[in-house]
Design a protein around this nucleic acid. Structure first.
Lengths: 195, 195
DNA sequence: GGTTTACTTGAACAATTGTTCAGGTAACAA
DNA sequence: TTGTTACCTGAACAATTGTTCAAGTAAACC
């Protein structure tokens, strides 16, 4: 992957993240990079293929951040810091508080089969990252082992999705801190009987 | 509002809900209703105005369901039933598991100022419904009063958003039941110090 | 020097979009 | 009957979309 291709991917990620898939035109991408259509199509076969690569890049990075969190020693503290970092993106990059993949899910019907597949794979990839974290927490004796790591991981991802929406909409960040605190209590709290 | 206009609104709601705002063309609406453009534009000034009405209709109905829930005597049971009903929409209407408004939020940048405003208002409207429910729960002594009803309502709405995404993606519904059980424990569980 | 390779340009295409409009129809009031 | 109102038809519009392509450029390799 050449330097230029990486630059294209980065700028395209910004656009797709901020505006969505359909709302981002190839001309938007061209303008942001000062490129002509032919140059862009020489590297990426089309809009859909470009989006697939953006999705994969995004999921790989997010999972990497989760794996990094799972390697720390103070796991609960690390978990809290991970959430804070993701949820409290500064005002200049507020759009990043929403999840690119969840945004894409809302437009799933207008994605080609390949992009829809890539989207599903990306969400599964991230779930794996959460599972690693949950397993680490269980091994360290920080949370219950009476519920399977996969199920807790899905629960955690669900919390994460809800919180990202909330963080995007929220007027001030105090409520977000409060919700993170609540989550830290809940994950250590009581769990229902496993189904 | 005439009978025909209501029919238009219903069909348009289905389309916008299932496919999203941009992905739904006025021709889609026309085809679904076997109408010609002029007939449609005689009743609704344009696509954006149609979407505004769909949003308002959607929010009004959802809030009404919350108010109804708040009127029951067994409030915790009613809350659980509300969640089950919303989250476990049958396979034929699976798209309804996602929230129309949250989907619309992902396309916010491509909405006109009027539609964006309507979207914000709709979300506020629903939050009011949650606040009513939480206040009722507090008055009945079912949950803590040490946290303001508004904050718990926002928390509950956050949970609801995450769960709807999860319910849409989930392969089987057992995990969803488990998450609802977990939510019912958490809402009665420990809460952080209020900010 | 000659040839290939990779990249660029800028115009153009076909399809789809939201919307408009001149003219038609049918019911109802005066 | 006459006029009004409300709705409808079907073709057409201008703009935007993703994408293609013939032609040019410039560095790399023989």
């Amino acid at each position: 992957m050449s330097e230029r291709s990486n630059e294209i991917l980065d700028k395209a990620t910004e656009l797709f993240w901020e505006k969505g898939y359909q709302a981002t035109s190839m001309r938007d991408v061209q303008d942001k990079l000062d490129m002509r259509p032919g140059s862009l199509y020489a590297r990426f076969p089309g809009k859909s293929a470009l989006f697939v690569q953006v999705i994969q890049h995004y999921a790989t990075q997010l999972r990497a951040r989760l794996e990094l969190t799972s390697d720390e020693t103070e796991l609960l503290t690390a978990t809290r810091r991970f959430l804070s970092d993701e949820l409290l993106r500064p005002p200049s990059k507020r759009y990043q508080r929403q999840c690119l993949l969840i945004n894409a899910m809302a437009e799933r019907s207008k994605l080609g089969t390949d992009a829809a597949r890539a989207l599903d794979d990306a969400l599964t990839e991230i779930e794996k990252g959460f599972t690693t974290l949950v397993s680490a927490l269980q091994s360290a004796g920080q949370i219950t082992t009476s519920v399977s790591p996969n199920l807790i991981a899905t629960w955690l991802q669900t919390q994460f999705i809800g919180l990202r929406h909330s963080a995007y909409r929220a007027g001030n960040d105090e409520a977000i801190h409060f919700f993170i605190d609540k989550l830290m209590l809940d994950i250590q709290g009581q769990w229902p009987a496993t189904p």
